[in-house]
């Protein structure tokens, strides 16, 4: 653990750039003074409410409070969101007035850079520009990771809501996590009502066949666990059945 890092943070280095992973699931990029977050899924609860499933209508408020606190903690001046910022294209329309006011304040306080996700593809209704990919030097930001990264280029993405399960003293604990290797980082979902996909699932593990590091979100710290390289033995086994 590095004592020079901000409280609770872990260092991730991609293409010689330093990033601080934070227990909220946000990532800070000191060189750009930018806070990076993925998958806010704003207004997820009200999306379900429309279908008669009345999840607590506090998810957007929670997510935005957490976002604001993290941005102030790092003294960020800009925010990068890696897509699926809204749960669906109608999210902003459903957002209650009080939350909208809070959101507008945040929009005015920080410089925002939006990446398009698969849940929120229609940016024109919102009046800002969204990007498929943003490249800063040798670092790409996008929603869904690409299989083929050009050599020397690193990438930060979201989409999968990675979560890791670890076995401790016979109990299985499951937490959202950062997962990264030499040139690829997939961020945990930042939204307060977002579930997760196990990092062992082929959808994620296929990108980390050489193994990866996971940082599990704890209350005040991150917990580092290694994901071993994928085992080929499982495959040959299934073919016999």
């Amino acid at each position: 653990m590095n004592k020079d890092l901000p409280r609770g943070c872990e260092l991730i280095v991609l293409s010689d750039q330093h990033f601080y992973a934070h227990p909220t699931g946000a990532l800070y990029w000191p060189q750009k003074q930018a806070l990076i977050v993925a998958d806010l899924h704003l207004e997820k609860a009200s999306h379900f409410a429309e279908k008669g499933r009345f999840l607590p209508p506090y998810d957007s408020a929670e997510t935005l409070n957490k976002l604001e606190a993290a941005a102030r903690f790092f003294e960020a001046n800009q925010i990068f969101t890696l897509g699926d910022s809204f749960h669906d294209n109608e999210a902003l329309r459903r957002m209650p007035a009080a939350i909208k006011a809070q959101f507008s304040k945040l929009l005015a306080t920080f410089r925002w850079n939006w990446i398009t996700g698969n849940h929120d593809e229609e940016p024109e209704q919102r009046g800002w520009r969204q990007h498929e990919v943003l490249r800063f030097g040798q670092v790409d930001l996008r929603h869904i990771t690409t299989p083929d990264l050009p050599s020397g280029v690193s990438e930060i993405s979201g989409h999968f809501h990675p979560k890791a399960k670890v076995k401790v003293r016979g109990r299985v604990l499951s937490r959202p996590c950062f997962i990264y290797s030499r040139n690829r980082l997939i961020m945990p979902a930042f939204g307060s009502l977002t579930g997760g996909l196990a990092v062992r699932d082929p959808a994620i593990s296929t990108f980390f066949q050489e193994g990866a590091v996971t940082l599990l979100l704890g209350k005040e710290n991150l917990h580092r666990y290694r994901l071993p390289p994928s085992k080929k033995t499982i495959k040959s086994d299934t073919e016999t059945s």
């Binding site: 670890v166 076995k167 401790v168 003293r169 604990l173 990092v199 704890g218 666990y225 071993p228």
Partner: peptide
Amino acid sequence: ELLDEGSDDLIAEAMG
């Protein structure tokens, strides 16, 4: 605390 304990432990392993 359990998670911390596990991190220090060789047996512990990410098993997503």
